[in-house]
Structures are given as structure tokens and as C-alpha cells.
Nucleic acid binder design. Structure first.
Lengths: 112, 112
DNA sequence: ATAAAGCTTAACCAATCGGTTAAGCGTTGT
DNA sequence: ACAACGCTTAACCGATTGGTTAAGCTTTAT
């Protein structure tokens, strides 16, 4: 398993949880404190803290401290890793499906 | 947690494993028997069978039987689910980052 | 100086994961 | 008829997950 595989494992793993995806959705609106982030969830602070660590490990967010408040904001690296894998695969995949359609004589292979 | 969340959980979970991603990569070359699929892996047949069930549950592949051979092929639904989520989020995200760049007076907000 | 706020770390728990071996089941070859 | 093939299901195992509570640590407020 090479370096890239581990990155992909961590990113997809991080995204495979509703709470973590919810946190990312929140952060689209900009940097936020951890207190605010946890507000919608009926979950203890340590639980949120763990989710954030997983998102951080996957390079989906980064954290910073101002006074006693900890802040989180989005990072592009993680999402790019995931998107690259998906797009690469879906492109090849689609090509094959188009070829199959052509072979079967379908009328509009592009119009799927 | 709504229906869509469960779908996303299952797709991202399925993709968060090197073996399972490897299987998908193989299947880009077209439909294949399960025997052939397991060949590159030093893993028992039941282990592969489990991975395939997880990929199936996520609508990433579908299985069929011809005689005593079981075949697998790719499906578009699962990958589309994942890509839609990612693209939606990266779009919003990028917009915000561009806005931030503009605010900071960077020269080429599109050229990232 | 002390208390409270805002979070993290540590220790623990049940449930799930990724693998195993053993057994089963339909299909094919002899 | 029966053995081998191709794969799945069942039962089991240690490790990891997602949550908990209790304790700790730094910063702010009184």
C-alpha cells in the first residue's frame, strides 16, 4: 500500500460519517469555533473533538487557537484527493460504457 | 439521518479501503469473474466475498451468475452519489475561497 | 486568588470491521 | 454416481470505531 493509498483511505473514511460531513457543510460558511460547530449535535465535546481529529488527519480541515477558543476551517487538499480518484475512475468507466453502448447500437451514447 | 445520508455513508465507507478501490480499478477493464478479481490479493475467498458485498451495498458494482461462475461489473449509481456530494461542496467552498482572495486583493483569484 | 469557560486527553465500553477456517451448495467434469 | 470447482454462509477472532465519563490544561472573568 503506497502513500497515496493511505491518503485516500483517510479521506474516504473521514467522509463516511454523517456527523463529519455535517461539520464540513457547516464550515462552508467560513471559519468557526468548535463550540459553534458542536452546537447542532447532541453529542459530548470529546466526541466532536475526535471527529475533528479525523477530519484534520484527512487534510479536510485545519485548526488554530485564539485565546481559549479553538477554530476550524476548511482545507482543499483532502477533498481534491478524493475528487481526483473519483474523476479518474468515472472517466474511464464512462468511456467503457459508451463503447458498450456503441457496440449495442444505441442511438445517443453521449446523451446519458 | 435521512435516506441520502445512509447512501453517502455506504459509498464513502466502501471507497475507504485499498482492496475495494483496487477491485473497482480492475473492473474498469470490464466485467470479470470473482476468481479473477481475487487473484491479485493474498486473501481468502470469503474475505473477497465480503468486500464485494460492501461494494454491492453501495451500488458500486452488481453481480450475476452464469453457471457456477459469479461475475461482477461496475454500476454508475454509487460513484455518482459520491461525486455529487464532493462537487457540490467543493463548488461552494471554492466560491468562498475566491471571495476571500478578492478581499485580500490577490491578483488572480481564478488561477489557483 | 479563584472560578468558570473552552477544549483535549485518558480510560473505558459495546458494536462493527477485516480477516480467518470450516462447512454448505449449486454446477461441471469424469 | 461422485469428485472437483467456484463461490457463499456461519462462526469466530483481534483491532478499530463512535460514543461515554472523568480529569486536566490553558485562558478569561470576577
Amino acid at each position: 500500500m503506497n502513500h497515496h493509498d493511505k491518503d485516500l483511505d483517510q479521506v474516504f473514511f473521514a467522509l463516511a460519517d454523517t456527523t463529519r460531513r455535517g461539520i464540513l457543510s457547516q464550515l462552508i460558511n467560513g471559519k468557526s469555533t468548535i463550540g459553534k460547530i458542536s452546537q447542532p449535535y447532541s453529542m459530548s465535546a470529546p466526541a466532536i473533538s475526535k471527529h475533528l481529529r479525523i477530519l484534520e488527519r484527512a487534510n479536510l480541515i485545519k485548526r488554530s487557537k485564539i485565546g481559549r477558543q479553538h477554530h476550524c476551517e476548511l482545507t482543499t487538499a483532502g477533498l481534491k484527493t478524493a475528487e481526483d480518484w473519483l474523476q479518474f475512475h468515472r472517466e474511464f468507466w464512462k468511456t467503457r460504457l459508451d463503447a458498450l453502448d456503441a457496440l449495442l447500437g444505441k442511438s445517443d451514447p453521449k446523451g446519458r
